[in-house]
Amino acid sequence: MRTVIALGMAVLFAFPIWFMATSAFKAEAEIQAIPMHLIPWDFQGLAQFRLAAEIAPMWTYFLNSWLYALSHVGVTVFFGALAGFGFAKYRFPGRAVLFLAVLSTIMVPFQILVVPLFIEVKAFGWENSYPGLLIPGMMNAFGVFMMRQYAADLPDELLEAARVDGASEFRIFLQIALPLLLPALASLAIIVFIWSWGNFLWPLVIVQDKALNVLSVGLTTYTQPYLGQPMWGAAMAASTVATIPIAALFIFFQRYFVKGLTAAAVKG
């Protein structure tokens, strides 16, 4: 009985994704067929993907999305761990105030920032450029917060022993703290990747050049008719391309994926 209910729910929720992935391999006319075809009757191979790359520079968008997401992941993970370690394991003047200041940025939604941040970044001369696209969102306060909690659990004796052995503080971070934080860093990396990969508003306002656009913004091209024809096949192909990286993360790192998202929700 439970299996039947669950099956109904799974079909209801999975079918739009199924529709997207299968329509990427259908001919344009078949996509709108009523009743809907569950699988392509007239299999198109990769033709719709090639068409999508012809209508707009899809692979450039795709690479930019990777650049955007990976730079955010790299910076947040490294500097988040460094700062989290610093806040957790050192007692320096101003520690509480600085931590509170960093933490308070979690509460500010991005829509509040977008207008002043745009004016600021424009004043830096970074409008419509990679620095303007990539730098302002590179750090995520949630990363600092999460890493501080995990770093606090590191045993002090271990750090003290290294200190007695004459290791520099930076080496203690790099060679003792960082390896122990690795599982938490993996969860953090996945969360930040998902957030950055789907980011829409900032890339939309800061970049005008097609060559600099990320895939989430580039996708909107495909909802418009091209040469007077609707291009739903190309739209579904590009949508599938935009979903594959996250789906791959889900398949290969399911444990970290669900753990990371839950941790982000509970603590963020």
Partner: peptide, 10 residues
């Protein structure tokens, strides 16, 4: 899994 924009397009 899909970004919001993908959801909107589909």
């Amino acid at each position: 899994l899909p970004p919001v924009v993908v959801i909107a397009v589909v």
